[in-house]
Simulated scan of single mutants.
Amino acid sequence: MSIPERRARERAQRHQLIVTAARELAETEGWEAVTTRRLADRIEYSQPVLYSHFAGKDAIVAAVAVVGFAELAAALEAAGRSAGLAGAARAYVAFAEANPALYDAMFSLATDLPFGGPDAPEALRAAFGQLLGALAPLAGDRDAETFTEVGWSALHGLVTLTRGGRLRPDLAEQRLTILVDQLSRS
């Protein structure tokens, strides 16, 4: 292996170490605890090393979000193969419940990630593609991507309102069933 190849590999490993450390810190202490100083201490590199990988916290959040979209796509793919929209909806909600800080990075915190266009990162397109695969067959004569955006919005709304304590917790399954039934009607 050449020196440039080794340096590139080490840089990629540092990049992943920063992303992993940020995610772990956010999941245990919240995104407020994720600072370049804390990350530098945690990964045992200086703050300038972090800044050689990321412009700042927003860029770190965006990198964590991209990882989250890849994981969400995989969870939706695994669920969708066997259980259609109902399985995908349950997988989406379970993913959000199991990864609250990651979900915040994906949907609530400021990032410059482009959504809904050809310049969106592959992981974002893959996650949307999985939702599209579950919802497009139900769109009827409506635009499948717009129908998917509406279904995604409804799922996100249920997740957000539930996490915020705004909905009755004992009716979560019933709400999800109603949503799936409504989306399934042509």
Rank of each mutant, 00 (worst) to 15 (best):
D41T: 09
G117M: 06
T20N: 05
A110E: 04
E5G: 14
R11N: 14
A79N: 04
E122I: 03
Y51P: 00
A105S: 03
A123N: 03
A91F: 09
S153G: 15
A89D: 02
W152E: 02
V150M: 12
Y103R: 12
E24I: 04
S108Q: 07
D170K: 10
F107N: 07
R90Q: 10
R14Q: 14
L50D: 08
T160M: 04
V67L: 09
G68D: 01
A120P: 01
G116N: 04
R81A: 14
L183M: 13
A33L: 06
D141I: 11
G129R: 02
R14C: 05
E10K: 13
M106E: 02
W152H: 05
R163E: 06
E27C: 10
L76F: 06
G140T: 07
Y103V: 04
V34N: 10
R9N: 04
E145V: 05
A134M: 06
A75P: 05
A73Q: 00
A12S: 08
F115A: 10
V64C: 05
R185W: 11
P48S: 12
I178L: 15
V93P: 02
L155P: 01
R168T: 12
A79H: 08
L102I: 09
L50V: 12
G164F: 06
D112H: 14
R14L: 15
W152R: 06
V49D: 01
R42D: 01
A73E: 03
R38H: 10
E27Y: 07
G84R: 09
R185A: 14
R38A: 15
Q13D: 14
S46H: 12
E44Q: 15
Q16E: 13
R185D: 06
V159F: 11
L76K: 00
E44R: 09
R166K: 12
E145K: 07
K57D: 08
L132Y: 13
F128H: 04
A74E: 15
R166S: 02
E173I: 03
W31K: 05
A62E: 09
Q16A: 15
V61C: 07
E10T: 13
E24H: 12
L109E: 01
A22D: 00
L113V: 10
G164M: 06
Q174C: 06
R166V: 10
G151A: 12
V64T: 01
T146C: 11
L167Q: 03
A70H: 00
I3Q: 12
A26M: 14
L17D: 11
L161S: 04
G30C: 10
P100M: 14
A96S: 11
E173S: 14
F69E: 01
G84W: 09
A65C: 10
L158T: 05
V61L: 04
L39A: 08
A22H: 02
L109I: 08
L167T: 10
